[in-house]
Computed example of a mutant assay.
Amino acid sequence: MKLTNNNIIQIDAALLKAGIKYLDIRVELTDHIAAALEQQDGGFEPCLATYMQHNHKNLKALNRRFAAIAMKKTFSVFIKNIGSKRFALVAALSLAAGEAINWFLPGSPAPMVMFFVFSVPLLFDAYNPMFTLGPKKPVFSVGKYYYVVTAAITFISVWLLRFWDTQALSHLIILSYALLTAVADAKYNTTKKLFEQYKARYHAA
């Protein structure tokens, strides 16, 4: 059986219907299914329906496997960004800015200012297309479970606000927010880098 471009689109639609929502995984599985169907004789649609029915559990297992590989890659890049010169520079600049505010404006809510500085890269990351589930945006498995990092640093940042007016802890809180800002920036850069890689590889619009 020789497949057409329309057949490839039908395979992708069948995978989406089966719950394979990530574009990169659907592309890989579409190639896998297409190769299998080309070895068969008969009508395309009956063969596809039979294949999907007989391999439903296997496809789900492959979906989980590919998602796990993508997640491992995401955190690997994230850890490398944590150890980069950019991370150290962002942390140092954030710390210097916080201490400058604390020094030149005694009694000012420097930790509160640091919280809003920290929020900027986190907000940019939150609106990255990788996590947009709109019908016109590609959704990649590389973002699966990555929200845990956002949840963790957001929780810590909000918890620290309890002590924003405690003068004795001001330097420690400013340091904490400086590090959180660098972590949020590293997360944003990880997301952006991987999204561009996946977008180019899978020719996503």
Rank of each mutant, 00 (worst) to 15 (best):
M52D: 03
N58K: 14
A61M: 10
F87N: 10
Y22C: 09
F78S: 02
L89K: 00
Y51A: 00
G98I: 04
A67T: 14
I82A: 09
H54K: 11
K85I: 15
K72F: 08
A13S: 08
E28C: 07
N58R: 12
H56C: 09
K73G: 03
R26E: 06
A92E: 04
Q40A: 13
T74K: 00
S76A: 12
A91I: 02
A18L: 13
K21F: 14
D31I: 03
Q53Y: 05
A18R: 08
Y51Q: 08
S84M: 09
M71L: 14
E45Q: 13
K21T: 14
H56I: 13
Y51E: 01
P46W: 08
L23G: 10
L16H: 14
M52I: 03
A88D: 10
A97G: 11
A88V: 11
C47Y: 04
L16K: 15
H32E: 13
N81Y: 02
G83Q: 02
T30C: 07
F44K: 01
T30P: 01
Q53R: 13
N81H: 11
K57H: 08
R64D: 13
V90L: 03
I11N: 01
V27H: 12
T74Q: 02
P46Y: 13
A36I: 09
E99A: 14
D31E: 07
